[in-house]
């Protein structure tokens, strides 16, 4: 077992350049044992490149990466990792059973009973060649092979793309169970609600750089809220601009839409002077915050 002091994933100054392109730029990351770490970023931010560096598929241009205390190229350490790639390429002739047997052999055995439960839970027909399966079903095969040997570390790259919502729920339950068992999960995604639902901490990657690492709760606290007041009469211009925390105001015929950061109390006090008929609060999630990070709003 890994001593508790060794983080399941640790990178120091991890850098990867492809010619003139810097795909990953001086990444310092430490994922703690037993957590779900959300790795967020738009497509092309360098998430998959980071994962391929972690697993030893790529050599870093500079810096280093360790998984479970060893380089990812070390076969012994890979026995304890479950990997679900973003783009699943199986030999189309394999059936799920073939694949499970083959990977099971390579890993020196797998938990047979658990594997059967997984197949049942994801309603997978293990006797059909993978080439005949739909994208969603192929994804299920990917999930089963990643979890079947009960790894200590799960590296999941866009895990639920192509899964229907019910199975996404099932997948989320599975992750929570594995974490409860003591596994660590590195969850790369560009889908925010998924990360928000599962992760305790997130790192946000943009153009190869880690912009921030924060607890999801902190981000939520910092997140801006969009509040729309529908009023009986048009709102007087200039009413909200000076209110603390207000970042933008859009007036329209039937009311006003305000973007506010931090506590909304001052805003509500001011709004109380209006005849408010209805309040609408779309996007109370982290979407706006992330969009801002993605677009580089942090650098201004």
């Amino acid at each position: 077992m890994t001593p508790p002091a060794v983080p399941p994933i640790e990178t120091r100054g991890l850098t990867k350049r492809f010619g003139p392109l810097t795909a990953v730029d001086s990444l310092d990351l430490a994922v703690e044992r037993g957590e779900v770490f959300g790795f967020l970023g738009p497509n092309g931010a360098g998430k998959t490149t980071t994962i391929r560096l972690l697993l030893g598929f790529l050599n870093p241009t500079a810096g280093c990466a360790r998984v479970l205390g060893s380089p990812g190229a070390d076969p012994a350490v890979r026995r304890r990792i479950g990997y679900l790639p973003a783009e699943l390429a199986f030999d189309p002739r394999y059936t799920a059973f073939d694949l499970i047997d083959f990977f099971g052999d390579l890993r020196g055995g797998h938990d047979q009973a658990f594997t059967r439960t997984l197949i049942d839970r994801f309603q997978l027909d293990p006797t059909r060649p993978v080439g005949d399966l739909s994208t969603g079903n192929r994804r299920k095969v990917g999930i089963v092979q990643a979890f079947m040997h009960r790894p200590d570390l799960l590296i999941l790259d866009e895990p639920t793309s192509g899964l229907d919502p019910l199975l996404q729920q099932e997948f989320h339950r599975l992750i929570r169970e594995e974490v409860a068992r003591g596994a660590t999960v590195f969850l790369s995604s560009h889908v925010l609600p998924e990360v928000e639902a599962l992760a305790s901490r997130v790192g946000i990657l943009r153009k190869g750089r880690l912009i921030t690492v924060a607890a999801v709760d902190d981000l939520r606290r910092k997140a801006r809220q969009r509040i729309e007041f529908f009023t009986a009469r048009p709102v007087p211009r200039g009413l909200f601009e000076a209110v603390p925390g207000v970042r933008s105001v859009v007036y329209h015929d039937r009311g006003v839409q305000v973007l506010v950061e931090g506590p909304v109390d001052p805003l509500i006090k001011v709004a109380a002077t209006l005849t408010v008929e209805r309040i609408h609060t779309p996007g109370q999630d982290l979407e706006d915050l992330f969009l801002e990070y993605y677009q580089g709003g942090d650098e201004q």
Binding site: P75, V77, P85, F90, L106, R107
Partner: peptide, 8 residues
């Protein structure tokens, strides 16, 4: 790639 993610 998926094969090389195994302990081999």
């Amino acid at each position: 790639e998926l094969i090389l993610a195994n302990p081999v």
